[in-house]
Amino acid sequence: GKMTGIVKWFNADKGFAFITPDDGSKDVFVHFSAIQNDGYKSLDEGQKVSFTIESGAKGPAAGNVTSL
């Protein structure tokens, strides 16, 4: 299901971020390909987002990341 959280930090050079979920679970890795914005895919620290949890090769990662 959809979860919500806050972007903890975003590394534009490497194209990934971490989200701190609102439910208090541990921070979730985000690859820029999961960001659903049109055009430039970036996130801002402190931004509120919704996302799903996908199981990636290196463990859980956020999918369908959308700005709220």
Rank of each mutant, 00 (worst) to 15 (best):
G15K: 08
F10Y: 11
V49T: 01
S67E: 15
D22M: 08
V30N: 00
K41F: 13
V49A: 01
Y40P: 07
S42Q: 10
S42L: 13
D23Q: 03
V30F: 14
V49E: 00
V28C: 11
A62K: 07
E45C: 15
W9A: 03
V49F: 02
V28H: 03
S33Y: 07
K2R: 13
V7C: 03
V7Y: 01
D22H: 04
N64F: 08
K41Q: 10
K8Y: 03
N64S: 10
K8R: 12
F32Y: 11
D38T: 08
D44Y: 15
M3L: 08
V65P: 06
N37M: 14
G5T: 01
D22I: 06
F18D: 01
F16D: 01
G63R: 05
D38H: 10
T20A: 10
I19S: 00
A17Y: 08
A57P: 14
G63I: 14
K2S: 10
G46L: 03
F32L: 09
D44A: 13
K26M: 10
N64T: 09
V28L: 13
S33L: 05
G46A: 02
Q36P: 05
D23N: 07
S25G: 12
V49Q: 00
T20I: 09
F18M: 11
I53G: 03
D22L: 07
T66M: 03
G5C: 03
K14H: 06
D27N: 08
E54Y: 08
A12F: 09
I35E: 03
V7L: 10
K58H: 15
I53W: 12
F18V: 12
G5R: 00
W9G: 02
K8N: 05
S33D: 07
N37H: 10
S67W: 03
S55Y: 10
A61K: 06
S33R: 06
A57S: 12
P21M: 05
T52D: 07
N37I: 13
P60Q: 08
K14I: 07
F51T: 00
F18A: 07
A34Q: 12
G5P: 00
N37K: 07
N11S: 10
V30S: 00
K2F: 14
T52V: 10
S50R: 07
S50A: 11
A57I: 13
Q47I: 08
T20K: 11
I35W: 15
F29R: 06
A17S: 01
V30C: 06
A12N: 07
D22T: 06
D44W: 15
G24V: 01
G39S: 10
D38I: 11
D38L: 12
S42A: 11
T4E: 04
G59F: 10
H31Q: 13
Y40A: 09
D38R: 05
T52W: 12
A62L: 10
F10N: 01
G56Y: 11
A12W: 09
T20P: 00
G24M: 03
P60H: 07
D23K: 02
F18R: 11
G1D: 09
A17L: 08
G15H: 07
K14M: 07
S50V: 12
S25P: 02
S50G: 04
V30M: 08
M3N: 04
F10G: 01
P21Y: 04
G39L: 11
K26D: 09
S50K: 06
G56T: 14
D23G: 05
K48R: 14
I35R: 01
E45T: 12
P60R: 05
V30D: 00
G5Q: 00
G39Y: 07
G15V: 02
G15P: 01
G5N: 00
N64G: 07
D44I: 14
M3D: 02
L68W: 01
G24F: 03
G46T: 02
Y40C: 15
Q36L: 13
Q36Y: 10
Y40H: 09
L68F: 01
I53F: 10
I53N: 04
G15A: 07
S33G: 07
D38S: 12
V65A: 05
Q36C: 14
N64D: 13
N11A: 07
G56A: 11
L68E: 15
V65N: 15
S42F: 12
M3G: 04
D27T: 06
P60S: 06
A61E: 15
D44T: 14
L43V: 06
A61P: 09
Q47N: 05
N11D: 10
D13T: 12
S33C: 15
G1V: 12
G24C: 06
G46I: 02
N64H: 08
V65K: 15
T20F: 02
I53E: 02
F51E: 00
I19G: 00
E45V: 14
V65E: 15
L68Y: 01
G39E: 09
M3C: 08
E54G: 07
W9F: 10
G1A: 11
Y40R: 08
L43P: 03
S55W: 12
P21L: 06
K48S: 08
G5E: 00
G5M: 01
G59T: 07
S25T: 08
P21N: 02
D22S: 06
S55H: 12
F16T: 04
F18G: 02
L43K: 01
K2A: 10
G5V: 01
E45S: 11
S50Q: 08
G1I: 11
F32R: 05
I35Y: 04
A12D: 04
Q36S: 09
V49M: 01
D13C: 15
L43C: 07
S33E: 07
N64I: 12
E45Q: 12
K41R: 11
N11K: 04
K48P: 08
Y40Q: 11
G24T: 01
K14T: 06
S25I: 03
N64A: 08
S42R: 12
G15Q: 12
A57W: 10
P60Y: 02
I6E: 02
S50H: 06
K58W: 13
A34P: 03
S67F: 04
D44C: 15
F32M: 07
K41P: 10
K8C: 08
K2Y: 11
G46M: 03
I35K: 02
Q36K: 06
K58T: 14
K2M: 13
K14S: 08
V49H: 01
F18S: 05
K58C: 15
K26Y: 06
G59N: 13
S33K: 07
T52L: 11
D22Y: 03
G15Y: 05
T4P: 01
K14P: 01
F51R: 00
K48A: 08
S55M: 13
V7H: 00
V28M: 10
I35N: 02
A62Q: 12
D13I: 12
A61I: 14
F16R: 01
A62V: 11
A12C: 15
Q47Y: 05
A34H: 12
A17I: 06
K41Y: 10
S42N: 12
V7P: 00
S50W: 12
G1M: 13
D22V: 04
K41W: 13
F10P: 01
K41M: 10
A17C: 06
D13A: 13
I6Q: 04
K48L: 08
F18Q: 07
K26F: 07
G15R: 08
K26R: 10
G56L: 08
W9I: 04
D44E: 13
I53A: 05
M3W: 05
L68G: 15
F18Y: 12
K8V: 08
Y40K: 07
K8A: 04
L43N: 01
E45H: 12
G63S: 12
